[in-house]
Design a protein around this nucleic acid. Structure first.
Lengths: 191, 191
DNA sequence: CGTCTATTTGAATGTACTCAAAAGCGGTGG
DNA sequence: CCACCGCTTTTGAGTACATTCAAATAGACG
């Protein structure tokens, strides 16, 4: 029922009291599609855990060209890690793509929880390490694969997102223009 | 004197006993340039902390095209995080570029240390989070900047490496061919 | 139904790559 | 200490992958 407790339980085990404490430091919010949870230039005050719906993080080059850093569906965490850690203005937006229920974990509560439940250090260590691994892989893919190969890999890894997300944003995630993505897609269909 | 203890002290404070315990679980090794500490296909058994010298991690596309994931100088950690976490064969090489003194922290000792000194969970959480931030930034740079811009950014961030590392490897890190890098460089010099 | 945005398609362009060959540089052995 | 060998860097010509700009088409939403 509480997806987020299940998520924690993947790497650490919490007593019922600890679970209660954890939940008491979070807040559940409902957001409609297109809501912007964080604007570039703001300081990121929360980690977001997605119960349902879809979010994305992206930056926007002065000239309104967007680059998608990540998507987050049910069961995923999303934030502007740079801004969250440094508590300085970041350059990411976080936007709701599909009506979403989101668990907010405020930065200051996270620090409190680290003190009260040190096991959480372990959880977020593992979370960060796993995230690091997948970012490293994506980086290497961007260096060594063609757009077509990256697209195929994306499809096999995230078939679910293909339905939910406008393809211009998948293009952006893969690092190509929407126009090129469209041409590439139809070319691959023909085979 | 012990660079690695200084490094830990940046984020957590250890008692002298804890410091001793930590060091007792590590091993210091000297390696000559060109030594390969980890081959693709092997399981990564250690985290490496660089006391002196320079290392790099890279993968190698079947057809012998190399892509540099990261460099590590004095004071930096390096490993194949994927393989280290999963204890499955990875696809990274770790190589010594410049004669190096390296602190080895074996995976199994790391687990022991997590139990004996839970504060280390915090340290490696912060380490992973910071690494994640810089990988995210590099990823976004690869999506949104030209090769020239990435090169300029690299220069201003890592002037020291420019001297120490063959430029074909900087090219590889930036995601361009050595030939193109050379042309780009001379073009930028002329300005 | 009309408006707004996303997608498709086409033509011209550019950034970066491949292949090839020459020049430079560093280390090693005689 | 010099000469040679291998590797890195440079340079050039031709090519390819992906972009830009523009316009037409399709879809989604109020």
């Amino acid at each position: 029922m509480t997806l987020i407790i299940d998520n924690l339980s993947k790497h650490i085990s919490l007593t019922p009291q600890e679970q209660k404490l954890f939940l008491s430091k979070t807040e559940i919010c409902q957001y409609k599609a297109k809501t912007i949870l964080l604007h570039a230039g703001e300081i990121c005050k929360n980690s977001y855990f997605v119960n349902s719906g879809v979010l994305r993080s992206f930056n926007s080059n002065d000239n309104s060209v967007e680059h998608v850093l990540s998507f987050a569906c049910s069961g995923w965490w999303i934030d502007d890690m740079y801004s969250l850690l440094s508590q300085k203005p970041g350059n990411l937006f976080i936007e709701v793509l599909e009506n979403a229920e989101v668990v907010l974990l405020p930065k200051e509560n996270q620090e409190i929880l680290y003190q009260k439940i040190p096991k959480l250090e372990r959880f977020f260590r593992i979370l960060a390490e796993n995230s690091l691994v997948s970012h490293q892989e994506r980086l290497m893919d961007n260096l060594s694969l063609t757009a077509e190969e990256r697209f195929e890999k994306f499809c096999s890894k995230h078939r679910d997102l293909m339905q939910k997300v406008p393809q211009k944003q998948i293009a952006s995630y893969l690092g190509v223009t929407p126009e090129f993505f469209s041409k590439m897609k139809s070319k691959m269909m023909r085979k």
